[in-house]
Design a protein around this nucleic acid. Structure first.
Lengths: 112, 112
DNA sequence: TCTAATGCATAAGCTATTTATGTATGTTTG
DNA sequence: CAAACATACATAAATAGCTTATGCATTAGA
């Protein structure tokens, strides 16, 4: 990973939002989806993903169902009611963050 | 700090960009400026600020001049040529981050 | 005169992450 | 058909970027 540090702190927001939009997804699928949407610029590492999924489940924001595709296990995650509340808060924080960054970093806003 | 984790990783970008725009600033002044611009939503702690200023100086991205205002010390920082190169890279990364977040979190973009 | 603000600094601890492994199945390719 | 790569889960150690806590000193305000 020669990538930048900016994505730190946004993983839970991304996971919850994605599950809120797309319905059930399994871990590996989330990594592929995020990589695709970000044009390969954000690659979620497994060491970050799986502990985060377990944490969100432990917090009651996600539920999990294990399914077998042939001999291969998949753990499908879905967002809970509390998860939906939480994602709304996280989205507000993200919007506020982006707004503040734009203020801080683009002082040349055209107010004309 | 009950604040969110999203600001992690953006401190160096903010400092360098601010110094690139405003010219010389001292540490405390940076914290006040950032707090004001973000409407109090981003408060840089001293424990984060000063080590970062020292790090950026050690990397040759900032230079420092000590001045006395009466009996009170101020350390004025200015951006170097290498700092300007670096801030350009960091800005590109920030723009890319924000673009990717908007793709990931606002799937309902009007393409109409 | 006590408190808050200004202005610097560092050390310990926390937390989200990266890096490094590990296990196992399925698919592609030389 | 064997090796490499993709799929799919998992965890532990190390790292990075902070927060929290503390310290010192000057200045302004209640």
């Amino acid at each position: 990973m020669a990538t930048n540090q900016l994505y730190k702190g946004s993983l839970s927001t991304i996971i919850l939002k994605l599950l809120g939009e797309k319905g059930r997804m399994y871990g590996y699928q989330i990594t592929q989806e995020v990589k695709a949407i970000s044009s390969g610029e954000y690659v979620i590492t497994e060491g970050a993903l799986y502990p985060m999924l377990h944490k969100l489940e432990a917090q009651g924001l996600l539920t999990v169902e294990i399914e077998m595709t042939g001999n291969r296990m998949r753990k499908y995650y879905s967002i809970t009611k509390n998860g939906k509340k939480e994602v709304a808060n996280l989205m507000t924080e993200m919007e506020s963050y982006i707004r503040n960054m734009q203020s801080l970093l683009n002082p040349k806003i055209d107010l004309a």
